[in-house]
Structures are given as C-alpha cells and as structure tokens.
Design a protein around this nucleic acid. Structure first.
Lengths: 363, 363
DNA sequence: CGGCAGTATTAAAACGTGTCAACAGGTTCG
DNA sequence: CGAACCTGTTGACACGTTTTAATACTGCCG
C-alpha cells in the first residue's frame, strides 16, 4: 500500500494496470490502481459500450449479458467514475442546496424534505451554508457551477439575485426557497408579512403597548417582510409605527438574541418582544431570565419558525409555524420538473400560509 | 433560451459552438452552450495550456499575459469544469463527511470545525447523513467513492468497518470521528466510557438508587460505551448492575426520548435517568413534564453532548460536555495530512476527555 | 556574432465515461 | 425465400481539463 498516488507521481507510464487488477483476486493486495469500465468489459467479454449500457439503460441489454457484466462489476469492485460521467453528460446527477444557516433547525427540516425527494430519483444533494453572507453565497454558487449541478435550491442572503441569473444562463435551473420573487423563476415561500402580522396582532391583543422587533440584518428578505407585517398589524390597530422598536443584530442565532436582550435591558424594556426566529427568541429568553426578568409576566415573547426546541424551552415559546418540510419537498419537485423539461416548464410562485402557535411565553 | 439541452437531443452535430459564444458579447443572448478553456484561450490569444496555468499556477505565467487571460475569463463568464479537472487529476478537491444525524446540533458543530479547516485549503466538503442506518451509510460511501473524494470523515453507524477498508484500498483516506478504532486508521474521539461514568457517578452521589439509561441502538458504539461507563460507575459504588435499567429506542432524537419516557412511566419511574444524548433528554423532559412528573424533584435527569439548547430547556439540563468543534477540526487536519503524504503518515488515535456540566435537572 | 541560460508559451497526449451510427444475427411477414 | 424489421452489441469519438516535453523568445556574456 505504498505511495497512494502522491500529487505529482511524474513517472508512471509503464505500470501493467490490467494485470495488477486481475492478479489481485485474493484482494488486499490490489494496490491503488482504479478499475475502469474497460476492465469490466474485458472480464465480462463484452465491449465497454455494453457495460455503459448496463449502468445507464439496463433494459437495452439482454438479461444474461447484464448478469455477466454485473458479476464482473462485483468481482472487480468497480465503482463508476462520476467525474467522467458528468464530463461526458454535461451535467451531474446532483443538485445544490444553499441555506442561510445549517445550525438552524428550520433549514435542517427543509433539507430533510429536499433529500427525501431527491434520493427517490437517485440524485445527490450538495448542501452549502452561506451563513447569511453574500460573499460565501457567491463562492458556494461558483463551486456548484463548477460541479455542473443540474439545479440549485437557494435561500438568498440578500436581494441581489444577479448571481442566480448567471446560473440560469448556464442552463442550471434555480428555485428560490423561503423567498418569493418577481416572475421568471420558481419560488416556494411562506407569507412572511402575514406571519409578522399574526405575531404582533397576537401581542397587541394580549395588551402590549410598547413592542420590540428583534431581527437579523434587514437586507435578509424574511426579516424585512416580517417587519412589514408587524407594522401592518400596528396600523390595523390604529397605533403609530414608533411603538415598535427595531433591534437589529448581525447573526440570527441564540448569541444574537442575547445581544439584543442586552440592548433592550439597557434601553428600557418593552411589554412584548417579537423575534424574527426562534433561535433569537431562545437567546433573548435566556438572557432575560439571567437578568431576573420574568416571561411572560414582565415581557411577552414570541418567536418564528416553531422549531422543535421551542416547545421544550424554559418557558415554552409562542411561535409562528411554517410548513417547513413541505417547503423543501415542493421546491425540489419544482426544480426537478424544470430540469427534466426546461422548455415546457411554467414558472410558479407557491406561497404557504403560516400559523400562530400560542404557548406559555405570551399567555 | 429554448431547449436547454433536453435529455436526448439526438441531432446536434453541426452546431457552430465557437461562433455562438463569440457572437454573444451582448450577453443575455448567450444560450446554454458552455464556454471552455479553449474559448478563453482563443479570446486572449494564447494556448489552452496557458489558461490552465493561469488557473492553477499563476506564478508561472507573465503578469501581462495573466491579466489578459483573466480579463477574457471575466468577459466570457468562464467557470472551470470541475468534472474535467477531477477526471484528469484522479481526485477531486473535496472530502466527504458522513454523520449519524444532521439534525443533531452535536454533528452540526463538528461540521463547523471541519468546514473551517477545509475552506482554508480551498477544498469543499460533501455532507452526508446516514441517519444511523448502515444501508444509507453504504450508499453515501458509494457516492463519495464515485466522486473520487480525497478522503472521508465518518462516524460509523455500526461496528462493521469493512466498507471503509474498501475505500482505503481505493486510495481514499479515512478518519473516524467520535469513534475510536483498533490500529491502522486515524481516529478522533472522546472517552465515552469516562463520560458514562461521570454521569452516573454524579447521579449516584446525588442519592439515586434506581436508574435508567435511555439510549439508541446499542450497535452504535457511543451508546454501548457510555453504557459501559455507567456500569463501571455502579461497580465502583458497589452496586449491582440491575439497578440500571436500559431503555433502548430506535432513534436518538426528541421523539425517541418521548417514547422512552412513556415506557418508563408505564413500568415505574426510577430516581434518575441518564440519556445517551441531549436530544433524547429533551424528549424525556418534555414527556415527563406533560405527565406531571417534576424534574429534578421526582426524577433527576442528565443528558450527553451539552448542545446549546440544553441550557435553555424548561429545566436547564445537566450534561456531559465534549470538545465538539475541536473534534471536527482535528479530524480534518489528520485527514488532510494523510492525503498529502500517505506514505509518511503515521496513524493516530486521539482521545479527548469529557466534562460534567451540572445544571438544574440534577441539582 | 554565436551560444547560453533563463523564462514564457505551446502542442499533444492522456483521464474514464456516454453516445450514436453501424452492424450482426435472428425473426416475422409477404 | 428474400425483404423488412427488431434486438443486442460494437467501436470510435467527444467531453474539458492538466501535464509534460519541447519550442520560441529574451537578454547577456564571451
């Protein structure tokens, strides 16, 4: 097992590849030489083309031949070289999924929906994390383009969708996830304005008079839309926008929530806090508890996404529930449909409706 | 934008590819034809080899030439075809990471460690989820082998490591994560026996006399080792093994925890419960609370992993903390070291020590 | 002015698969 | 009995990049 193939092996012209493979039937002595479709063909006594057919259109080859080839594949331990296949085909059997935060259970659930659909069609999914940074997002997209993925599911980190347009010009289908868009692209989303409205209306019903909205950067569409919904709720109730204070933090996780809570504690607490996601809310909750503030008695709190942990929190968290798994599932179906028939495909914008879940934190 | 390249286009022999690309300088009209290294070369007035050099060893080409090539790349919107590069090189610039559960914050944290190291060396990481199923694990490994990844980081779903041996015979390096192993492979793990001991010793110190161990399948090494540690703690305290009842559930998540709690409620509650991970513990906690059982007054509870949510739980959860991020980081460094110099590489087994974190749930 | 030591660039040969036109052998039909 | 057809199989080529050995160019010294 020497010399696994260091980077520049330089001279390796005269290795007797076939013999090495054939002679290694005792296994363990095989060495690192890869066995290719040709080796299989030789072993099975057919041409490489037939082996390729067995792999890709098994129905076109006679049952007995097929069996012989498959046995040769097993005996030699052949695994198809995906790069060569992709190169030849012009497309890989993979799609990309670019999310804002893999640490967020919301996206993990979306990913489950994606994977379930994709693996049925034996494709693979390449999961990328943009961390809400447009820079990382761009790098991820470049990698996906290099890999020649069939399509990309993405929750964009900002409103600039020009990178996506570039992808589509290259023939890579794109579906927006949790982000609605103008017209000429598929998208699957949840009505965030309605969600924001739902949350704040609930807090107002409960008697809140001074509110805070804890959020990530407003460049992120979800954050901006939920804010819009929140303000709509105020208008409906006949209240001025100034009763809702924005608290913007750079990261939408528990750390960001803690930071927001510090700011609020320093500046005077409101009656009620609406957080742009549950991670923020959990961070706020913990920081408030440490400061001796009682939820919901001193401050009511509501989050967004209804992740699993919310119901198990110190104070079970009210939240806005979204059909998360469905989001991933439908988006993937749309994407694959577009991949399979790009010309006959009509772009769709699908929008789900969110749902209010009331728990202890705002009771 | 018609006909993106449907599956069997059948006749497309005489398309004038070059012209199509060159003529599309107004962009938007470009069509789907891909621009390759040759197009760039032609545009910049150099040979394809030079373009390749600009991409891979910029220092070998004169500054003025380099600039011209880079401009051509921009103008044409060229992105390198990763498959072709991989095919030629025999290896892709990617490593695989196979985890038991992407939904588990423990593995998400490991993944962060991996990604931070890997992106410094501008490689990519392909994240796969085995869902604790050996079958899915095997499929994932096959995909990774097809992609010709440089190496694989894996938390095996069972004790059968033969698939990994196959990979290594193909020249794909393997490092075990959170799993220690015999001798001829690198591994990075945490002493699970010590962790189990720590947890149960703590519960015994607190006065527990009848215990339960809530765990996933004992085929998973972590579960088995933690159990071993738990029993060692009993022996040390001079107690018989039968005071610790095993409650095995199929999935190590909150749902599994709830299931375990039902069983315990039906069969008579113990004094103290040790869960093989925090997700299970959170599930147990919630189910107990619903049944009106108070933690820690009626039952003490301790989890494992110390994920972020544990401290924010309804009853803040005691747990066993592991250096999770480090686990991913060190494992990746080991893997890349082995990839870079397979012959001069000595396999190492690194083992960290876990730490007891006491919170409300066992106070 | 010839030759020399660099440096910059090129041409051509791989890498392993998928595709497609062509063909062999067999069967059915007129 | 030959023609038309069908099924299985074949060979050769193309996919886009990297790499290596060879070649062109540039000053520079003898």
């Amino acid at each position: 097992m020497r010399e696994h193939r260091a980077n520049p092996p330089s001279e390796r012209s005269d290795r007797p590849r076939h013999e090495a493979v054939r002679g290694a039937s005792e296994k363990g002595e095989r060495g690192v030489s890869t066995v290719g479709i040709k080796d299989v063909a030789q072993r099975a006594g057919v041409s490489p083309g037939t082996v390729s057919n067995v792999l890709n259109r098994p129905e076109r080859v006679a049952a007995t031949t097929r069996a012989r080839v498959q046995q040769a594949i097993r005996e030699l331990g052949f695994v198809r070289n995906g790069s060569a296949a992709t190169l030849r085909a012009g497309q890989s059997r993979a799609i990309g999924l670019v999310v804002l935060d893999v640490g967020n259970p919301f996206f993990v659930e979306v990913a489950r929906g994606v994977e379930d659909v994709v693996s049925d069609r034996d494709h693979a999914v390449i999961l990328c994390n943009s961390g809400e940074s447009p820079g990382r997002e761009a790098r991820n997209l470049r990698v996906l383009a290099e890999q020649r993925v069939r399509g990309v599911l993405i929750t964009p980190a900002d409103e600039d969708l020009s990178h996506l347009e570039d992808l589509r010009e290259r023939g890579i289908a794109v579906v927006l996830v949790d982000h609605s868009a103008a017209g000429d692209v598929c998208s699957v989303s949840v009505d965030d304005v309605a969600g924001g409205d739902l949350a704040v209306t609930h807090l107002l019903d409960r008697g809140a008079e001074r509110l805070a909205y804890v959020t990530g950067p407003l460049g992120i569409r979800q954050c901006a839309e939920r804010r819009k919904g929140a303000r709509r709720a105020l208008r409906t109730a006949g209240l001025p926008a100034r009763v809702l204070e924005d608290v913007v933090v750079p990261e939408m996780n528990a750390g960001g929530g803690a930071l927001a809570a510090e700011k609020l504690l320093a500046g005077g607490l409101p009656d009620a806090i609406f957080c742009a996601n549950d991670l923020l809310a959990l961070g706020v909750l913990r920081a408030l508890a440490q400061a001796g503030v009682r939820v919901p008695d001193d401050v009511a709190l509501i989050g967004y996404d209804d992740i699993e942990f919310s119901s198990a929190a110190a104070v079970p968290l009210s939240s806005i529930r979204q059909p998360t798994y469905q989001l991933g599932k439908i988006a993937t179906e749309l994407l694959l449909e577009e991949c399979d028939d790009p010309s006959g495909h009509a772009h769709q914008q699908i929008m789900f409706h969110p749902e209010l879940v009331i728990r202890e934190s705002s009771r």
